[in-house]
């Protein structure tokens, strides 16, 4: 039995009369690369904000790293929010220096290793970067931290294919010898599904299917196939 790093029981969060999370039950195993998969509006971002304590549940219980979410554990979590941007006047090297002073657990040697994997030159200025290059920088700042939990909200969205491949290859190389749990939300599954150990499918604020990706493949087919079935059957065919 693997220990779980995030545990949710019957979590509900409403905005007005809309349920962002609707009695969500989730248990996320540690030291895995976990895909949090679902269409836009299925509750992925709200779930991440709840793990980092930015949003409180209306009801239900949530435990992260064995504790309640909030400022007490946030130094152990690296969180890359949706649509994050970086200071335009920084270079890559400048961003690393800044991060070393301010981000708990930031390891500049790790950052340099990742920058090499993802082919980012140190003297590149943020203002001159493509969206894909800026996304790579944001990702490096997050992943270079020696923390047990890394959360990446839609890190591949709106990024060109080349950047996406660099990111995936960089993550695979870097993660080969590391014990960290990484949660990655995405609605673009096709090219990235091979990197997940575990997948959780969200729909309308509920987890409708979760499990080891290899077992899910044996039972239902690819993550991409499963995902497409959601749209076809509306509320999830499982």
């Amino acid at each position: 039995m693997t220990a779980s790093i995030v545990n949710c029981q019957q979590i509900t969060k409403r905005y007005g009369d809309k349920h962002a999370l609707d009695e969500l039950n989730v248990s996320i195993p540690e030291n895995k690369i976990v895909g949090i998969l679902g269409p836009n509006g299925s509750g992925k971002s709200t779930f991440f904000r709840m793990i980092t304590g930015l949003v409180k549940p209306d009801s239900g219980e949530i435990e992260v790293l064995g504790k309640r979410p909030g400022s007490g554990i946030n130094r152990e979590i690296a969180y890359l929010p949706d649509r994050a941007r970086w200071y335009p006047n920084h270079t890559v090297a400048g961003a690393f220096e800044w991060a070393e002073k301010l981000l708990p657990g930031f390891d500049i040697a790790n950052a340099k290793e990742l920058a090499d994997f993802m082919e980012m030159k140190r003297d590149m200025r943020v203002s001159g970067m493509s969206r894909g290059q800026e996304a790579r920088l944001m990702l490096i700042l997050c992943m270079a931290r020696n923390v047990p939990l890394i959360i990446l909200d839609e890190p591949f969205s709106g990024i060109d294919v080349i950047s996406r491949e660099r990111i995936i290859e960089g993550m695979i190389d870097y993660l080969s010898d590391r014990d960290q749990t990484i949660l990655i939300s995405t609605h673009e599954i096709y090219e990235v599904e091979g990197m997940f150990d575990y997948a959780i499918f969200l729909n309308q604020g509920k987890a409708i299917l979760s499990g080891d990706t290899e077992e899910l493949r044996a039972q239902y087919g690819s993550m991409h196939d499963i995902f497409r079935q959601f749209y076809r059957y509306g509320k999830g065919g499982f």
């Binding site: 895995k32 690369i33 491949e165 995936i168 290859e169 695979i172 190389d173 993660l175 080969s176 090219e191 091979g194 990197m195 997940f196 150990d197 990706t213 290899e214």
Partner: peptide, 15 residues
Amino acid sequence: SVREMAHALKINPNT
């Protein structure tokens, strides 16, 4: 190596 294989196949090293 596991790493080379995972990199080239773009899949999880654990697999």
